[in-house]
Computed example of a mutant assay.
Amino acid sequence: MAWTPAGEAVNSARLAEYYKLPGAYLNKQLQALVRAGVMTSVSGPRGGFLLARRPENITVLDVVLALEGPEPAFRCEGILGNSPEADTEMNFVRSCLISQTMRQAELVWRQALARQTIAGIADSMERRFPEDRQKALDFLAADAG
């Protein structure tokens, strides 16, 4: 969608067909992106979805948070508290070395995603596969059916 002209909506059915995804699944994901302010939906015969901001202002982290939510990927269950003679007052989320390692890894992962923009991915794709941009635009612009 970073390749589509500004203000031009992409039909979700065409997008689902292009990526061979179930339409209902893709629509659910697109609606989550709309709720997060990453995309905008347009109703009507020429409706569909478009980026709500310029591609260089949308990070991969924005997309991940919109689709997966802000909660950490790793959730410490505090199983160390179940060990014999465990200190019930201890915060195992903070003291567990596994939890600390996972939180540190997630921070690095999120920082990497925050540095990568949708525009950067589109530019890399175009350099690596120069013919794909026009193929995608032609497919998405064609009448569905």
Rank of each mutant, 00 (worst) to 15 (best):
L15R: 06
W109Q: 10
G78E: 03
A142N: 13
A16G: 05
F129L: 11
P70M: 12
N11W: 08
V64N: 11
C76H: 03
L137D: 12
N57S: 15
Y18E: 09
G145Q: 08
A122Q: 07
P45D: 13
A13N: 11
E8K: 13
M39Q: 05
V108D: 06
V63D: 02
G81N: 00
M39W: 02
I98T: 10
G69A: 05
E85A: 11
L30Q: 01
R54Q: 03
L67D: 01
A114E: 08
G78D: 01
K28R: 08
F74I: 00
I98M: 10
L61V: 01
E68C: 06
L33N: 01
T117Q: 01
A119T: 11
G7A: 04
E8V: 09
F49M: 00
T40F: 12
E17R: 14
R54T: 11
N27K: 04
A112S: 09
A16L: 05
N91V: 02
V63E: 06
K135G: 11
A2L: 00
P22D: 15
L107K: 15
S95Q: 13
F49E: 01
K28G: 11
P130I: 02
P84A: 04
E126R: 14
D132M: 11
N27H: 06
R35T: 09
L61Q: 06
Q104K: 06
P130A: 00
A141K: 12
L15Y: 07
F49K: 09
P45N: 09
F49W: 01
L113Q: 04
A136F: 13
R35F: 14
Q31N: 07
D62K: 09
A142K: 07
S83Y: 15
E71I: 04
A141H: 08
A16C: 02
E17A: 13
G120S: 03
R110P: 03
R46C: 12
S12M: 05
G23H: 13
V38T: 00
E68K: 14
P72Y: 00
A9N: 04
L140K: 07
Y25P: 06
S43I: 14
S99V: 01
A73T: 14
P45G: 15
A24H: 14
F139W: 03
A114M: 05
V63G: 10
G23F: 14
T40G: 08
V42P: 09
E85H: 08
F129T: 10
V93W: 10
W109E: 14
A6I: 14
T117N: 02
E56K: 08
Q134H: 07
P72A: 02
M125G: 12
V108W: 08
E89G: 06
E131T: 03
Q29F: 13
F139T: 12
T117D: 01
S41P: 06
R133G: 05
S95N: 11
A122I: 07
R75H: 12
V108C: 04
A24Y: 15
D62A: 03
A142E: 09
S43G: 12
Q29H: 09
S83G: 13
L61F: 07
Q31S: 05
P70R: 05
V10N: 02
Q134Y: 04
G81I: 10
A144Y: 13
A144P: 12
V42K: 03
E89P: 07
L51K: 09
Q100M: 03
Q31M: 15
A142Q: 15
A122G: 03
L15M: 02
L30V: 01
M125T: 14
